[in-house]
Design a protein around this nucleic acid. Sequence first.
DNA 1: GCCTGTGCAT
Length: 623
Amino acid sequence: MSPLLLSHTSHIPLKPEAECIPLLHKCSDVEELKQVHARMIKTGLILDAIPASRLLAALCADSNAGSMTYALMVFERIQNPNTFMWNTMIRALSSGNNPEEAILLYCQMLYNAVPHNSYTFPFLLKACANLPSATEETQQIHCHIIKTGYALEVCTTNSLLHVYAKSGGILSASQLFDSIPCRDIVSWNSMIDGYAKGGKIEMARELFDQMENKNIISWTSMITGYVENCLFKEALELFRKMQVMDIEPDTIALASVLTACAHVGALDEGRWIHTYIKKKQIRLDLVLRCVLVDMYAKCGELDEALAVFKTTKEKNVCMCTAMITGFAVHGRGREALDLFTDMERTGIKPNNITFTGVLTACSYAGMVEEGKSIFERIEKDYDMSPSVEHYGCMVDLLGRAGLLKEAEEMIRKMPVKPNAAVWGALLNACRVHLNFELGRRVGKILIDLEPKQSGRYVQLAGILAAEGFWDEAVVVRNLMKEKGVAKLPGCSSISLGGCVHEFVAGDRSHPQTGEIYLEWNNILRRLKKEGYAPSTENLLLDLEEEEKETAIHCHSEKLAIAFGFIRTKPGATIRIVKNLRVCSDCHIVTKLISKVYSRKIIMRDRNRFHVFINGQCSCRDCW
DNA sequence: GCCTGTGCAT
């Protein structure tokens, strides 16, 4: 018997209620609650509605903690449970692992003709919100709400609005929104969130701008909406506006903004937020720590990511995964694997994303055997089936290592249909290992699969050109034009003094453009003296008529580096973020610059980091 | 008679 109860069983209580109710609050697990339950049966207290409700509520406190079965059993044995008790059960089931059970229980409640009260629908609708698809159920409940007259209650209507907005029924949501007589700030916020999550970001902004009284949730919903729609700059802009208006961000708002920083590589801004958190003594909860780790890692500051990670006592999957992914994109495979082992030892169960991180780490670090072994363990030790992403990682891992046959075999044996990412990994391997035959085949598959993706045409044309099949390369390029696919411009940014400067190839829009080109020519002269000869591997693509000025010596990363040279002191680290992969010529040039000028250059491309020091790159020339 | 609705992570 639990020590908690021992002291209470040795004497006969005078008032069972005075004894049991405070005890319920002291119980720390189901076993103790069961003992109090036993006591309540013995004393007859279980027949009182209030103590019985309290017991149910205690058992339901954490619906995922495993006491729900017992709670349901207790509930079933209560004769004529009141509305409060039904509500308690519905609420717990709604946020449990099987929300549909809440709906079933509600049906029983109807069958037993138990009256609703104003809490019933908000609890019940939470179940719909937590179900991936409960459109019909939601509509039926909507009818009940109207019939029972609860449509006039703002909490109930807002719950309904939230479900429609969250599950993609944005039209129903907006109709409902327009019809609510008692709309309040929650209605507006749910609507903004619904529009944003449904990809209608302009509609969200329109509502947001119309709102007279915004609260922190309105601002956060809008910022998060921008992040989810990959409009990171807009997210940061809105955050700045928030500050101008003296609106204090809370933990959730900051987490959202930090995510935006991570995506664009805005280290200064991210660091500023970290300082702000410390200054304002905002509690660093696990989510905030997790996004800080992610932000620092994605902004190239792996040591700072590690510092936040190490000072976190209670870690969870997300936290560990963020760190593992951080190690991965920095090419530090060994440390990623060690952390994974640590996770297993401490009983933190990895998930899909964790495995993607670990496999990526193995791939980028060339750890083929380790990667294979982890991949096998997904099924064997974790009873999970590898996802398309995991297969993509494996194809990348094998392909990078030059095992093209094995990579192709992997795709052939996949139980799930390979997607563009999987084929893309193989195509990249063909580029790295100069396998033109396979490259040509895979390139065509990819173009069929994703005819709107410019990168695929560019990559295939690049491979063909590198082998000297110029005519074929031009055909591919023309095909892209015929299909009206615009080439996604390569864009590099450098963040200096809290301001992000962006460059595209051949860019002349920067106010200091004259100086930038002058500086670049100086650098180029110096590099040529050191024996640099431009690599023409990717040149073809950029020498077509209208793109003449985008010849490789004007690639965006070079302009960004030149600008970095103008604006930083000699020897200072330069950080560049690029939206595409680095081209091989830029990679050679940057290595040389790092040596000739003794500069550390940290370049984040769309997949990973390249840290250039003294003529070497952390990617070991394989990316 | 105790319990309602909206925003954040890998």
